[in-house]
Nucleic acid binder design. Sequence first.
DNA 1: AGAAATGATTGACACTATCCACCATATTTT
DNA 2: AAAATATGGTGGATAGTGTCAATCATTTCT
Lengths: 171, 171
Amino acid sequence: MTADDKRSSTPPITRVEDVDLGVLDGTLSFFIRSLNLAVTRDLDARLDGMEVARGTGKITALFLIDRHPGIRPSVIAAASMKDRSAMARILDDMEKNGLIRREPDPEDGRVQALHLTEKGEKVSREVQAIVRQSRDFFHDISEEEYAQVIDLLRGLYWRIVKSHQAKGTRL
Amino acid sequence: MTADDKRSSTPPITRVEDVDLGVLDGTLSFFIRSLNLAVTRDLDARLDGMEVARGTGKITALFLIDRHPGIRPSVIAAASMKDRSAMARILDDMEKNGLIRREPDPEDGRVQALHLTEKGEKVSREVQAIVRQSRDFFHDISEEEYAQVIDLLRGLYWRIVKSHQAKGTRL
DNA sequence: AGAAATGATTGACACTATCCACCATATTTT
DNA sequence: AAAATATGGTGGATAGTGTCAATCATTTCT
């Protein structure tokens, strides 16, 4: 047992810098969840005033519809890791704001084909610029490191997206 | 311009696997925000039925109080990247559930010294075991890769935590 | 002593995630 | 072809979140 054994308690502290994260320090989920808050705050600030500000799903929906006109809500839901009902509400909002149109899919009567309105396309371009800018929230890490983390997280992302799809996980 | 130019649209798709993430594919925040959902869901499932299930801040608070008895709410708030008012509500909840005690700090009348109750200590141990287990949500990445991402994210985490502290960002 | 800063709490508001039930349409089974 | 099952989308209900502004007590600064 050493002085900084992982199980020993340390005396009352006053500053965050002195916090010992213990188990959390080796827990990826902890950092993902914490950074999620920071990143979301940063993004919200950058998007302040725009129709897609506040809330996590709108940007993804906007971009995916832009890139894949006619895409269906459930696919966006899966890619956003949200459930279909959450997605419906986001699309409601975007429709109300005149960013998207919901059309009936000609091939399948249950399905909707989503399209951007002209306004939606304009907003999409603006937001893309902002999102690219948001890279400098991570100004203190190099291109190599940035690419490296993304590669890893991208792998996790696709594994999870696909396995949910496969297992029919009711999202 | 090649066939998969980043600006060109692809035809309507039906499966998530075919989605092209476009700008998002190079955006760290996108993966952090998506994985946050997946990770939180996984954690919630593992903690199902326990007093600290649902919600992001309770685990961190529990562990930090365990490790630093007498710690104050605002320090936990900073480490959790939440604002003090959000923290107060989490502590309310934990106090109601008999996990913590809020005592007046002997040194500073404005401050509270937080302590775990016996029940809190018991729960903390149980939850620590579960959190360690949660590593296998990322079963498909190696120890080296896991350690590598954590190292990077840890760096970002501390940079942000400290800079908020420094700038007096009103969280 | 008076002014300003800090720590904690509360109320309000909009947004989120989850679960369940529901309806319409497709697909599969018999 | 009829019945059963699966799929896509919607809507309600509930518990939780993040944010902002206001308040109050206490401490620190000058």
